[in-house]
């Protein structure tokens, strides 16, 4: 009898606290995976391109800025280093690694071509170009 009386007075406060903590956690971590992508260069616009839905965790993002500097994770690389990295990845994970080339819209095609050549010499064939479907700015 007494126990049933206790129930309506259940303390909601700790539960709400926890729920808020969870909400904050998920809001903050939601776009962490894009945090390393959003630095200062502008991709080309492709409003009709296929939207990115699922990203294979093995994907290697290779960036080219407008001056033709090739970077992976903000580390500038020479052509030889890039080939060595790609070869090492192929040796470990096989040739099905997807490559995403993120070229600045003003970069010259020859620097993109150098990356594609490095990929093909390493035996990688799943190459994609990244572009903005919608630009936030």
């Amino acid at each position: 009898m007494r126990r049933r009386e206790d129930e309506p007075g259940m303390n909601m406060t700790p539960m709400i606290d926890v729920v808020f903590q969870l909400i904050i956690f998920f809001v903050i971590t939601a776009d962490l995976q894009n945090k390393d992508l959003d630095f200062a260069f502008r991709l080309a616009m492709a409003p009709h391109g296929t939207p990115v839905e699922k990203v294979n965790p093995l994907t290697i993002n290779i960036n080219v800025d407008e001056k033709g500097t090739v970077t992976i994770g903000r580390v500038p690389l020479t052509a030889a280093q890039l080939t060595a990295i790609l070869r090492a990845s192929v040796a470990q994970y096989g040739q099905r690694i997807p490559i995403v080339i993120r070229g600045d819209r003003m970069s010259r095609h020859e620097s993109v071509r150098a990356i594609m050549d490095a990929c093909t010499t390493a035996g990688l064939w799943r190459i994609k170009f990244a572009a903005y479907k919608e630009e936030a700015r």
Binding site: A46, T50, I127, A130, A131, E134
Partner: peptide, 13 residues
């Protein structure tokens, strides 16, 4: 901060 929506364009080489 509004996020950019990315597209991936597939090509074969």
């Amino acid at each position: 901060k509004p996020v950019d929506v990315f597209a991936h364009l597939d090509v074969s080489r």
